[in-house]
Nucleic acid binder design. Sequence first.
DNA 1: TTGACATGTGACCTCTGGGTCACATAACTT
DNA 2: AAGTTATGTGACCCAGAGGTCACATGTCAA
Lengths: 107, 107
Amino acid sequence: MNEDDDRVFKALADPTRRFLLDLLFAREGRTLTELESEVEMTRFGVAKHLKVLEEAGLVVARRSGREKLHFLNPVPIRLIHDRWIDKYTERHVTALVDLKKALEDET
Amino acid sequence: MNEDDDRVFKALADPTRRFLLDLLFAREGRTLTELESEVEMTRFGVAKHLKVLEEAGLVVARRSGREKLHFLNPVPIRLIHDRWIDKYTERHVTALVDLKKALEDET
DNA sequence: TTGACATGTGACCTCTGGGTCACATAACTT
DNA sequence: AAGTTATGTGACCCAGAGGTCACATGTCAA
């Protein structure tokens, strides 16, 4: 359980991996070569990152012939949220975040 | 903005720092020496971790005489959540998480 | 079957980050 | 004032992670 945690947070620690999650969040079911074209890096690097994300459970993959399709799994993200944001204070925090966003939009 | 992100995720990548957040989540306003007593590490190590958490905005500190009181700031956590969990799919994910927890409790 | 395409594996190099220590400053107590 | 308490700073050591390459497997198309 704790090892799972560690894998998730370590996976999120790298900016390239977060960008890959962003790409999958925008459109799911992408292949390795497709993701590679969006990143300034070798295919091997991207493959390594995807493996880390997969082992952390943040990405789920499905094979289709010689291709491998990748999907984003939001559950671990939600668990991070629940760890440090109490249900009673959640309303309060969301209000704070909305306020912050509103202030930034004005500028 | 992107550098802020990076600081937050890098800060969360270390298990000791996550444990410190847990301690502050349980009871806020703790001092360095108090936190040190809960961790198997030198004071210097803990101080270093607290600095990282503070620079990431996950911990906010207030001085009181020669003591420094530390508080948890949940806003960055909420922003992580909002980055990859759409408001429309949030209900769905929460249901999944609740189901998972229920299944684990049965065992 | 032959060649092109999509992905997987292990070794290797480099550099960042966790942890400790010696030293220093500031504040409370008596 | 003197000693104790709470915290801050810079240097140092070492394990681990990011990135690339050479090589290998498996799948589609003609």
